[in-house]
Amino acid sequence: MSQGPILELRGINKSFGPVQVLHDVAFSVHPGEVTALVGDNGAGKSTLVKCIGGIHPIDSGEYLFEGERVHVSGPRDAAELGVEIVYQDLALCDNLDIVQNMFLGRERKSGLVLDEDTMEEMAAKTLAGLSVRTVKSLRQHVSSLSGGQRQTVAIAKAVLWNSKVVILDEPTAALGVAQTAQVLELVRRLADRGLAVVLISHNMNDVFAVSDRIAALYLGRMAAQVKASEVTHSQVVELITSGRSGELGIGNGIGAAS
């Protein structure tokens, strides 16, 4: 894929009071690719994601979407652009069923009444499109699903809205081996359908299993953004822990190469 990035951030700065969390961060996401965002605890991954999602306003820097400068000042703006974030704690309501969760806050209505049938159809189509066959009924409560199935529902919810960029915050952190494989497969399928996927993960195996590009944050700076095929496992670990690895990283004058 040699298309330009669908989402591009340049020179992003973000401070919380006296603490500067992001320093001049550049980050780009390409359609049809999985971009892994890695970094140690406190490197600024979550802050960066929340800036993209409009939850934190950025202090300075450019936010480009499909090549154009945009201003994202809230989650609604991001959703309108087609940017969806699947948070680590999933944000599903246990007491609602799969369809109800997928359409939460954006219910289809005919007049005053909820259009349950259309919603159920759309949910079924989305899940089928993702080749999800593990759920028994779309009308079962989310509380009765396994961790992997819940993650699937959360991802399907994000995909339902013809979104263009899906950001997954540690989707496999709480999952077992088989379910992790399931979710990673789903992540790959999203990218193959042409979506731009950002995967935040601590697990190098997961990162190398599905990513096309790897962006490493180190203490609030983008240490490097490289093709996954061009780096090794240990190089990425070095980038995460010390911000540099041989030619790559901060301090070699290269900064954030995309």
Binding site: P75, R76, A79, Y87, D89, L90, A91, L92, C93, D94, N95, L96, Q100, L104, G105, R106, E107, K109, L112, V113, L114
Partner: peptide, 24 residues
């Protein structure tokens, strides 16, 4: 059972944070 408002009541009762993130 049949209105979005009712659905949102259940959602807030089930997981207020999820409801907030869903724009409710």
């Amino acid at each position: 059972r049949r209105t979005a408002y009712g659905r949102h009541i259940y959602a807030v009762g089930g997981n207020a944070e999820a409801a907030r993130r869903a724009g409710i």
